[in-house]
């Protein structure tokens, strides 16, 4: 175990998997000579050469499609989007090609590809760089979606995503790259997709969340503890496949839950989770499940307005108290 940053954990996962399998390669804007816009691919060009770490033109649709096409004939591409906001330019290749290829080819052509990069808001980047993009990818069967919140999860889940034989959207937290945590050195440290992680235990209320918001949830739980309220914090880690058993287990334990997410409310991740809880754990509930999301507006630039629009600690605490009727 060593304490490293989320950024270095991702870098280790990339390097180890490229070392392990020479069909794995990385492409995207600025990934090679510039070391990555967020320095996630630092040093990889020197180590693996310019065929396996490939700078591309600013052509998201084209290079995402290049990745999918190479996967059609057996390579295992990792396509970096400088941010998932830019991936909307590439969605035709993600949805119409990657997610549907195995099905429409009658099972002949699988697409073992990872699309990765930051998703969600950082600080004052404005409406076009602050978008939490999970639901765009979650809506389509055929894709898996992973959102690591800690350095260890980042490494273990990225290795699993690269080894997975289906398309995986791997959404990193832009504010998490510098965060530190203990990460196993083991080359085979892989966290299987589809397993949630209970990041904190409590009996009174469940805060179910994913990605960057896990940290907000933990802060909210800390604040609630000062009032004698103990919260379970369930980090889903992978949204598809989804650890429904873990969701049902925490609801069965606390009987009260909120969903905390960075995205917008309408058909957001929380909408799906609430639907599952209602359909499968209705009798366990002592209160309606509430959602805490970004304000239902494009993210403003102004610092104060941005803070207001974000789903922060105060709103999470308030929602927990509401489902506890305190």
């Amino acid at each position: 175990m060593a304490e490293i940053t989320y950024r270095d954990a991702l870098n280790q996962a990339l390097a180890e998997e490229m070392e392990r399998d020479d069909s794995v390669f990385l492409l995207g804007e600025e990934v090679a000579e510039y070391d990555g816009a967020y320095k996630v691919s630092k040093g990889l060009l020197d180590r693996f050469g310019d065929k396996r770490v490939k700078d591309t033109p600013i052509s998201e649709l084209g290079f995402a499609g290049l990745g999918v096409g190479s996967a059609m004939v057996g390579l295992r591409p990792i396509v970096e989007f400088m941010t998932f906001n830019f991936s909307f330019l590439a969605l035709d290749q993600v949805i119409n090609s990657a997610s549907k290829m195995l099905s429409m080819s009658g099972g002949q052509i699988g697409i073992p590809i990872v699309f990765r990069g930051p998703s969600g808001a950082a600080l004052q980047l404005g409406a076009q760089h602050s978008h939490a993009c999970e639901t765009w990818y979650l809506h389509a069967p055929g894709i898996k979606v992973v959102t690591p919140s800690t350095p260890a999860d980042a490494k273990g889940l990225l290795k699993a995503a690269i080894r997975d034989n289906d398309p995986v959207a791997f959404m990193e937290g832009e504010l998490l790259y510098n965060t530190k945590g203990e990460v196993p050195d083991d080359d085979d440290f892989v966290i299987p997709l589809g397993l949630a992680d209970l990041k904190r235990e409590g009996d009174d209320v469940s805060i179910i969340t994913h990605g960057t918001m896990t940290h907000v949830a933990l802060q909210a739980a800390g604040q609630l503890a000062k009032d004698g309220i103990e919260a379970d914090v369930l980090d889903l880690r992978s949204l598809r496949p989804l650890d429904v058993d873990a969701i049902l287990a925490t609801v069965a334990k606390t009987n009260r839950a909120i969903y905390l997410e960075e995205g917008w409310p309408y058909l957001g991740v929380g909408a799906q989770i609430v639907s599952i809880i209602m359909e499968e754990a209705f009798d366990d509930l002592d209160a309606p499940v509430l959602r805490v999301t970004q304000a239902d507006i494009p993210m403003p630039y102004n610092k104060k307005l941005e803070a207001w629009a974000r789903p922060g600690v105060a709103r999470a605490v308030e929602a927990c108290k509401k489902v506890l009727y305190v």
């Binding site: 195995l102 099905s103 397993l195 496949p241």
Partner: peptide, 17 residues
């Protein structure tokens, strides 16, 4: 059968019941 190349040992992949 051909939506995902393998059925994950963990977690749910399909949400239509």
């Amino acid at each position: 059968r051909n939506v995902y190349s393998e059925i994950n040992p963990h977690g749910r992949l399909f949400f239509d019941g």
